[in-house]
Design a protein around this nucleic acid. Structure first.
Lengths: 223, 223
DNA sequence: ACCTGAACACCGTTCAAGT
DNA sequence: ACCTGAACACCGTTCAAGT
C-alpha cells in the first residue's frame, strides 16, 4: 500500500553502487519479506534507491534476474556426512528441504523457470556419488536421484502450501465439513490428516518410504 | 501478436449466452491452447466474444475463476479397480498423473492457489479407503496418502518441466558440458539421467519405491 | 440481471537521452 | 559505462451507465 515514505531524502544513486551481486541480494530480501507475488522490478528499484531501468544494465529481464536468484540459493555447501548411504542421502535431502522452507518462493522458481541441470549440480553430484558407491547400477542410481529430487520438491511445496493455508483460520481443517456419507474414510481420518501439517514428521515419513524402497532395489541390483 | 481478425463480424453478445460452466469451458480451452502465462481475462473475453467485464458477473476475480477451473479438472471419476491394494493405489496415482499431464497448467494451479482439501476429496477418499482396508493404521494411512499425493505432484511437475526443456534444443542435455573434474559422477551418468526424461518409466520407478516402502510399513503395522 | 465503456492503478520493458 | 525520464503496450479490476 504505502509506496514511499513521504519525506524520504530521495538521494541520487551514488555512482556504481550497483552490481549483479548487490541486485541479487536486494531481490532476495524483497522476495523473502514480501513474497514472490509482490515482487516487481519497481519494488526492487525502490529498495535499491534507483530508478527501475537501472537494473536492466545488469539483467536483461525479470526472468533472468529470477534465474540468478535461484542459482544463488541452490549453491548449497554440502558438508560430507558420516554413516550409511541412507544417512548420507537423508542429510542431503533434509538440507534441500530446509533451504526451500527458508525461502518458500524458491519452489515457485524451481517449478516455473526451465532448469538446465547446472543449477542442481552440487546436490546431484553428492547424491549420485553416494548411490554409486553404495552399489546401485547406473540406471538405478540415475532414476533414484530423480525420484529423491522430485519427492523432496513435491513434499516441500505441499508443506509450504499447507502452512500458508493453516494460517488462514477460515480454511483450517475444512475436511470435517465434508459429507461423511460420500467421504466416510476421509472424514474419519481428518484428525490424522491434520497431523501431517507442520513439522518434519511427514517429510521424514515419506523419505523413509523412498529409502526403504531403495534398499529393496539395491538388493535386487546386487543379485 | 495478432489481436483480432481485421474484419471479424464482431456481433454483439447474445443475451444470456454466458454461465459459469460456459466460462470455465472457455477458460480451459484458452489454458490448454495458449498456456497459463498467456491466459488473461481479456483473452478469455475475446474467445467468449464479450467485453472483459462480462466475466465478472459470474466470477469475482481471475483467481476465483482459476479455482473453478482447477476444481472442474480435479473432479475425477475413479472407476473401481480389481487387484491388490498396490494395484489399486497405482491405478489412482496413474490417473492423477495423466490428468495433470493432459493439462500441464493444472500443476501451477495446484501449487499456487490455496487448497481447502475439498478439491482432492475424491482421490483422497479412494486412496484412504484402499489403505485402510489393506490394514494400515489410521496415522500411517493418512501419512501414506499425503506421501503419495506429494510424490505424484512432484514427479508430474518435474516431468512437465523436463519435457518443456527438452523441446528447446539449446537446453537439451547440458549435463555433459559440466566440468567432469568437479562433477565426475554427474557427467558420467548424464546418459542415464537423460533417460529419465519422457515416458512413464521414471514415474513407475518412483511409485514402485513408495509402494515397496509402504509394504514394509504395513508389515510393521500388523506386527 | 446481465453486459458495456471508460478509466484507474498498476505492470515489464523499449527507446532516447543524459553523465 | 551506467543511470534516468518518458512513454508504450499491456494487465486486473472499479465504477457508472446502459438494456
Amino acid at each position: 500500500m504505502q509506496q514511499e515514505p513521504p519525506d524520504a531524502p530521495r538521494r541520487r544513486a551514488t555512482r556504481n553502487s550497483l552490481s549483479p551481486a548487490v541486485i541479487v541480494t536486494a531481490a532476495l530480501a524483497v522476495l523473502d519479506e514480501e513474497g514472490i507475488e509482490a515482487f516487481t522490478m519497481r519494488a526492487l528499484a525502490t529498495r535499491l534507491e534507483v530508478r527501475p531501468m537501472a537494473v536492466y544494465t545488469y539483467f536483461r529481464s525479470k526472468d533472468e534476474l529470477f534465474d540468478a536468484v535461484r542459482d544463488a540459493l541452490l549453491g548449497l555447501s554440502l558438508s560430507p556426512v558420516e554413516g550409511s548411504w541412507q544417512d548420507q542421502v537423508r542429510a542431503i535431502a533434509r538440507r534441500v528441504r530446509e533451504q526451500i522452507l527458508q525461502h518458500p518462493f524458491l519452489i515457485t522458481l524451481l517449478l516455473t523457470r526451465p532448469l538446465s541441470g547446472r543449477e542442481t549440480a552440487d546436490s546431484a553430484e553428492a547424491i549420485l556419488r553416494v548411490l554409486s558407491d553404495a552399489g546401485f547400477n547406473r540406471e538405478t542410481a540415475a532414476r533414484a536421484y530423480i525420484t529423491l529430487l522430485t519427492h523432496v520438491l513435491g513434499a516441500a511445496s505441499w508443506e509450504i502450501q499447507m502452512t500458508a493455508v493453516y494460517q488462514d483460520p477460515d480454511r483450517r481443517s475444512q475436511l470435517d465439513t465434508l459429507p461423511s456419507s460420500r467421504y466416510p474414510t476421509l472424514t474419519a481420518l481428518a484428525p490424522e490428516l491434520n497431523l501431517t501439517n507442520g513439522g518434519s514428521a511427514q517429510f521424514e515419513f515419506g523419505l523413509d518410504l523412498v529409502l526403504e524402497g531403495l534398499s529393496h532395489k539395491l538388493r535386487a541390483d546386487r543379485a
